[in-house]
Design a protein around this nucleic acid. Structure first.
Lengths: 247, 247
DNA sequence: CAGGATCGTTGATCTGCGTCAAGCCTTTGA
DNA sequence: TCAAAGGCTTGACGCAGATCAACGATCCTG
């Protein structure tokens, strides 16, 4: 049951960006009418289905994307198939910052969704005349880098429980930033994807989830949504202190 | 035996930046005379000794740095003391990109060195009038982000041998980019620091180093410098395929 | 140049998480 | 509506790397 989404939700007239629901979450949110007009002139509105590949590691990096709906996983592979997911992207996120001549990662749709696609060259050219946009991108990149550092701490030094708790806290924060209460968490990804994001296996993700459930810290609503029952305890498990979670 | 270094190596006249040896490695390398002049007007030239703290996690993020000499470790801590080093910085590297209102990391000198220090506000203001510098910073941030993704792959999915081999390859690449042959590697950090960078323990770093030594892949010159004897083999161990290294 | 401190190496043992295996649940498509 | 396939959970067991321990090497400092 794939819910088809309009390419960039808008009223279809004049400037497709001006009514875009993802705008306030995106870098383009800093642009006024004129800049927005020029940006939209070089953008292509794409929709994608679950499983669709947006970017393949090693391919020439010709496109940049602004996700406007749905969810995307960004990952790197080792030759023997081991996978590390370096990020999940949602509406408002920018894809293609960390790029040289070739993509250093693959990106695949987790669910149906939509994105604005830009030719890298045209985008860079436009960027030179829209300093606000460049500043916004730099801010975004700085923020991403900070998130990446947090993920390094997680992958290098946290235990399995701390990793999952941190992940749930991140999703909760994201929900809160998007206007939600941060109590109900949607998990549009599989356990295998969570595992590849947290540097664990599906089995460990499953076991740790069970433990959190039994402890009453979280409650599963469905397989792909849960409610945080004890936010303080979850926060504590996320890295404020270790050893608070007996086997 | 701390070798004192001039703050920003130059001839001491007119524009301190114009003769700076780190300039070609830094973001400021894109600036012509006029821009360089204005940048140098808001910069403070600092020297630091080994062990000196440049930035403390949680402090208000008032300064940005451009390292011009020496080496710096950037790290994050968990409350119980576990440490993750998120990067080593050398001459030409920029410190402070991944910053909000407060530093999300600490930075400490590994060796004596020097840095240009900027007030963040003044820097941002100047940035608005030097688009080339902003573009250079964005490029730098993108590159950092890509490196961060590689590190996530390393921390999340690579074995101990693969991690150390990748680390040595990185240092070799860096040496080559700085004009060296990439065969002789300097290790200005302790084993504990390597461990905290690679998500391992000192013991494991030591053991794996020994194995590489016995195998003839590397040769220790001193405790803190080594030569890569079999670059191809090291590259293979770094992640091209696993299981090529019997215990 | 002597002595203490720190850093590094190596060995023995332990353990958290991975691996292997089996069965259950959910989804989907005919 | 049902069956097949993929996703999820749980259990038993194994192992890579952590921990604990001891000792050797190196480096500061007086």
């Amino acid at each position: 049951m794939i819910a088809l989404v309009e390419a960039c939700p808008n009223d279809g007239r004049i400037n497709p960006c001006s009514q875009c629901s993802a705008r306030r979450l995106s870098v383009c949110g800093v642009l006024a009418d004129e800049g927005l007009q020029r940006l939209s002139a070089i953008s292509e509105n794409d929709t994608f289905d679950a499983g669709e590949i947006l970017v393949r590691e090693g391919d020439p990096a010709t496109n940049l994307f602004n996700i406007t709906a749905g969810a995307v996983r960004v990952y790197k592979l080792l030759p023997d198939g081991r996978r590390q997911i370096v990020g999940f992207l949602f509406a408002g996120d920018f894809l293609g910052l960390a790029t040289g001549d070739r993509y250093a990662f693959s990106a695949e749709a987790l669910s149906a969704g939509a994105a604005c696609r830009f030719h890298k060259k045209a985008y860079r050219k436009l960027l030179a005349t829209l300093p606000d946009l460049e500043t916004a991108l730099l801010d975004r990149a700085s923020h991403e880098l900070q998130a990446a550092h947090n993920q390094m701490l997680l992958l290098g030094r946290k235990t399995a429980v701390e990793r999952l708790a941190s992940f749930l806290m991140d999703l909760s924060d994201r929900d809160r930033r998007a206007g939600g209460a941060g109590r109900i968490i949607q998990l549009p990804m599989t356990r295998a994807e969570i595992a590849d994001y947290l540097g664990l296996t599906t089995e460990t993700v499953s076991r740790v989830t069970s433990r959190l459930k039994v402890r009453g810290v979280i409650r599963l609503l469905t397989l792909h949504s849960l409610s945080i029952e004890k936010p303080a305890e979850l926060a504590a498990l996320a890295g404020l202190d270790a050893g608070d979670f007996p086997a």
